[in-house]
């Protein structure tokens, strides 16, 4: 903790001397390897438990020693400046990082008592339980119906066409897209507007009824109106699903999440109730970030 303290002292001093020119980046080396996350990263009886997670891209370390729990049916927001590792961490939770050859993950990520990086765990099965929505809407170049039906089909969830129809309708309804597309289910998914495409991707994810939905900056490519719709949707989805959302939009995090985790340069600095993190941050880096001194 020595490093952090020094940094705090320096920061304060500089602030005192020149308050108006205080756009000073906290220095990188000021957090050492053995830092401790402040706030409340750990929970009783969590759905997901991550311990000492380190992630490397080839030789470069992207995530340092992260410990974080996620509770059932909560919305946890992960915020932080770009390159802080929040997306990398999110992608660890359903092993999307497996698709990158050079990526290595150390530590334990436990979902309902099962380490998901254990050899016995199948990534394919895992991803059915932990769905993901990406930054840029990526509907398949197929019909709306086929997009939503894709997951249930590959996992063999249905045997009858009518069951599949039900799943598609239900998913589209939950994603708030049904009213807009019910008459053109055979239309191309790529022909929808950006916001509709993203909701289609959410519907596609819901169709395999996952436990957890990961959202990797789901609104960064959308206009404000589409963003508002997605945020409404998140508020509805939290009743049935656990949601982990990465965002660089602090207001969005404040609006949609119940807990917030702040990442900085691959380290998890602070975790707490969203309200507390945004109003009374403990860590100076968190404070610096949410007050807009960098980011």
């Amino acid at each position: 903790m020595a490093g952090i303290n020094t940094m705090i002292d320096e920061g304060r001093t500089q602030d005192d001397v020149a308050p108006l020119t205080a756009v000073e980046m906290p220095r990188q080396e000021s957090i050492d390897e053995n830092y401790e996350t402040v706030g409340s990263p750990l929970l009783h009886n969590p759905l997901v438990k991550t311990r000492n997670v380190n992630v490397f891209y080839a030789e470069k370390q992207a995530i340092f020693n992260v410990n974080l729990d996620i509770a059932k049916n909560e919305v946890i927001a992960m915020i932080g400046p770009s390159g802080c590792g929040k997306s990398t961490f999110l992608r660890c939770l359903n092993r999307m990082n497996d698709t990158i050859d050079t990526c290595r993950v150390q530590g334990d990520i436990v979902l309902e008592g099962q380490d998901i990086y254990d050899r016995s765990v199948d990534a394919v099965e895992l991803r059915a339980r932990v769905g993901i929505v990406f930054q840029k809407p990526n509907p398949f170049p197929k019909s709306v119906y086929e997009n939503v039906a894709y997951g249930p089909r590959i996992h063999g969830l249905v045997n009858r066409k009518s069951d599949l129809d039900d799943i598609v309708e239900d998913s589209l309804k939950r994603a708030g897209l049904w009213e807009e597309v019910k008459d053109e289910l055979e239309g191309s998914g790529t022909g929808l507007s950006g916001g509709q495409q993203q909701r289609l991707c959410i519907a596609r994810t819901i169709a395999v009824s996952p436990d957890i939905i990961l959202m990797d900056e789901p609104c960064s490519a959308l206009d404000p109106i589409a963003t508002a719709k997605i945020e409404e949707l998140i508020a509805e989805l939290r009743e049935n699903y656990t949601i982990a959302i990465v965002t660089h939009n602090m207001q969005q995090a404040a609006r949609v999440s119940s807990r917030t985790a702040y990442f900085h340069l691959g380290k998890l600095i602070e975790v707490g109730e969203t309200e507390i993190v945004f109003t009374r941050p403990v860590h100076p880096l968190t404070e610096a970030y949410i007050t807009g001194r960098f980011g």
Partner: peptide, 9 residues
């Protein structure tokens, strides 16, 4: 995810 779905998968 219900147990039956998980089992099917």
């Amino acid at each position: 995810m219900t147990d039956s779905v998980r089992k099917t998968v």
